[in-house]
C-alpha cells in the first residue's frame, strides 16, 4: 500500500496574529513555521502503520503546495520518517487552488491522509476537495485508522458519539485529534537521513482563483472582566441571569 500525507505549512500555534498596514495580508515577519498540527499527527499514524502492519505499507510520501521556503517543513516530515516528498512550486491561493495542484501529483495512492483543517485560514476544505477531484471516498473527523486485508477500518466522530466504518481503497482519511497520541519528534539520525531523501519539485497547473481575502480585522477588544470574590459564586450566577441575561 502506498500512503500519502498532505502537509500544511502554518504559523506556530502560539503566534500572535498581525496583519500588514492596510490589513490585506497576514504579516509573516518573525513567524516560526510548523507542520500543521493535524498533519503531523496524521504522519505519525502513517509511520505507526508502516511499522506495525508487517510490510503492508510500502512507502509514505508527503506533499505540499508552497514556495521554496516551505521545504524546511517538508524536510521535517522526511526527518520524522516519510520516504519521499513532493512540493508543488506555487504560492498558496485558495483551497481549490491547492486541491487542484495536489490532484495532479496525488494519483496512485491507496490511502491519503489530510488534517481536518489548517490552523491558519481554517478552511477545512482541501481534503474533501481533493477526494472529490480524484473521485475517491472520503471519511472525515477520523480518530483511528487500521489497515486489514487491504481494507481501511476507521473510527470517526459523529454527533454524540463515534462510529466504526470501513471503506475500500483508494480512500481519503480526514483526521482529527486522537489519530495518534503524540506527534513524533525527528531524531538526529532522521534529520541526517532526511537530507538525502528525494524531494521532487513540480510546476503548478493553471487553476482559477475562486475566493480571495479582501481584508482582515482583529476581534474587538473585550471590556474589563467583572470580578467577584471566592465566596461570591452565587452572586456571579445571579449577575449572569439579571445582567448578562444568559441564564
Amino acid at each position: 500500500m502506498k500512503l500519502l500525507v498532505l502537509i500544511g505549512n502554518v504559523p506556530d500555534t502560539t503566534t500572535k496574529i498581525k496583519f500588514n498596514a492596510d490589513r490585506t495580508a497576514f504579516d509573516a515577519s518573525g513567524v516560526q513555521w510548523i507542520i500543521n498540527p493535524w498533519d503531523e499527527l496524521a504522519l505519525t499514524r502513517a509511520m505507526e502503520l508502516k511499522e506495525t502492519t508487517g510490510g503492508a505499507v510500502e512507502t509514505i510520501t508527503v506533499a505540499n503546495v508552497g514556495r521554496q521556503e516551505t521545504e524546511a517543513t517538508l524536510r521535517k516530515a522526511l526527518a520524522i520518517g516519510a520516504d519521499k516528498a513532493i512540493r508543488v512550486d506555487a504560492d498558496v491561493r485558495d483551497a481549490f487552488y491547492v486541491a487542484n495542484q495536489l490532484a495532479q501529483v496525488c494519483k496512485g495512492y491507496d490511502l491519503i491522509f489530510a488534517g481536518i483543517e489548517a490552523s491558519d485560514y481554517n478552511g477545512a476544505a482541501v481534503g474533501g476537495m481533493l477526494a472529490e477531484l480524484l473521485g475517491i471516498q472520503s471519511v472525515s473527523a477520523v480518530s483511528s485508522v487500521q489497515i486489514e486485508g487491504g481494507k481501511l477500518h476507521l473510527i470517526r466522530e459523529i454527533d454524540g458519539g463515534s462510529q466504526s466504518v470501513s471503506v475500500a481503497t483508494p480512500a481519503m482519511a480526514i483526521v482529527q485529534k486522537g489519530i495518534a497520541k503524540e506527534p513524533r519528534i525527528p531524531a538526529m539520525r532522521g534529520i541526517m537521513m532526511a537530507r538525502s531523501k528525494p524531494l521532487e519539485v513540480v510546476q503548478p497547473v493553471d487553476t482559477e482563483i475562486r475566493v480571495s481575502f479582501e481584508s482582515f480585522e482583529l476581534p474587538p477588544a473585550k471590556a474589563a472582566c467583572k470580578k467577584f470574590s471566592e465566596e461570591q459564586g452565587k452572586e456571579l450566577m445571579h449577575a449572569l441571569r439579571e445582567e448578562a441575561k444568559v441564564l
Binding site: A95, F96, A99, I116, A124, G128, M129, A141, V211
Partner: peptide
Amino acid sequence: HNNLGKAVASRLSVKLQAGLVTA
C-alpha cells in the same frame, strides 16, 4: 460548519464549480 457540513461542503463545491467559504 460542523464535522459533517465541512466534509460534505468541500466535495460539493468541486461538483458545483463553486467558490467555498467555510466558517
